[in-house]
Write a protein that binds this DNA or RNA. Structure first.
Lengths: 231, 231
DNA sequence: ACAAAAGTGTTACTATTACACCCATGT
DNA sequence: ACATGGGTGTAATAGTAACACTTTTGT
């Protein structure tokens, strides 16, 4: 099958759940379809896979087309293969997920979309096809990571306060956490480093700024719980 | 594309990593390819997806064709989409995984395979295409479950001893565990129930038999760590 | 002085880890 | 009697959870 002059696979697509954190809210990138079927309905950004393109690369390209920025690490979530998930035609889709900082991106609709927005995760309505299901799977994987305190490096600015980090975890997990214990845990994990800098221009005691200890952070991410044995 | 008289998708396949536990060893089901390309090379059982068949159902059917028994729950592991993973043709595959008891199955080669064997996990050599990678991903997911003590109900007989259960965990995780602590943990999780029955005809103190508390077992499985929060 | 958010002390409880030891059976 | 695996007691340490309190800023 050909699409925009490129030979693509005709029964597989990629759909992306791109998460951002802004104003202490977890948001997801949605586009409004400007083509049939389901024209006008909100959807996760998605697209076809080139015949000579790795699926991981297709996911990156599709994100880039939707947001204007590339080089983001896309993680595969799962594939979705029910017969009737897409009307008229049999299409299997592979769901991908990524975490970014909305302020780094200037959104512009792609060729087949009329709008692009950062939608608060609690205000996502009915999406097209099985995209709500894909989004749920991506969220679940995000939560699994957050429970192990391995989230934030992509979603927060270089310097951040512990309250911001806690708000992020609360937004992702959808629960409220105990301040004292959250801090104890973060310190114990050694994934953050205190800077000799403080917030300014706030009408209360300024919070100390922190950065992620990238070495320790990625060390834990790559271990991937491999050594977390029972007993 | 047509295969054995059925219309199938032509650039997607399913490959299955089927695990079994026998003689205190973790094993995986391998088939020897009897068609080109890579005829004669060992592989995970796999096949095409019917145009009117859910991908999950395709996985079940393929397992059934390889082992002669159906109705097993197949869990999706991941998809594999590198351009050159399959020679000559662009094919993306979706990896599935299942756990069974080898003694329940009588193996017979399918139409495109010359042999089917239960291969000990430590004696798996070079497989065809990227099947070693698919197997690794399936194993990793299996280990993640085992670390949370959520393994065994599919791999052990109805009644089993705690030593068998421990041997299973050790085989999957590839480590040795402390007997005392293993038992304490299993009891605490309440996923097993002691029976009023003991081993017979062993030349040492007979072990007490246990069953899984299915309700508690599946309750934990379905929670899927959803409530295991940090802090 | 007060509001607001940052940040710390402490305690009770639960889980993990590591050893040492006892028990019941067949030979 | 002893070899073999089954099975338990216990104590030190580490992690979790809950709550109360102090600190520093702007208004």
């Amino acid at each position: 099958m050909e699409y925009k002059g490129i030979e693509v696979l005709d029964s597989i697509t990629v759909d992306c759940a791109i998460f951002g954190f802004e104003n202490n809210e977890l948001k997801v990138l949605l586009v409004r379809r400007n083509i049939e079927p389901q024209k006008g309905i909100w959807a996760l950004p998605g697209g076809w896979i080139g015949v000579t393109e790795d699926v991981d690369d297709a996911a990156k390209r599709i994100l880039e087309e939707a947001t204007g920025v590339g080089g983001i690490f896309m993680k595969q979530v799962s594939s979705f293969g029910r017969v009737n998930r897409f009307p008229d035609k049999r299409i299997i889709t592979i769901g991908y997920s990524a975490l970014v900082q909305p302020q780094d991106y200037s959104l512009r609709p792609g060729q087949d979309t009329s709008d692009v927005v950062w939608q608060p995760i609690n205000e996502v309505g009915q999406l097209t096809f099985d995209h709500n299901e894909i989004l749920e799977a991506a969220l679940k994987s995000l939560r699994t990571n957050a429970r192990h305190a391995l989230i934030g490096i992509e979603l927060l600015p270089e310097k951040f306060t512990l309250s911001q980090l806690q708000a992020l975890h609360e937004a992702i997990l959808g629960v409220s956490l105990n301040k004292r214990n959250f801090r104890t845990k973060m310190n114990k994990l050694k994934v953050i480093t205190a800077l000799n800098e403080w917030q300014t221009e706030v009408s209360h005691r300024p919070a100390q700024l922190y950065t992620f200890d990238k070495e320790q952070y990625y060390k834990i991410v790559n271990e991937d719980y491999e050594y977390e044995l029972i007993v």
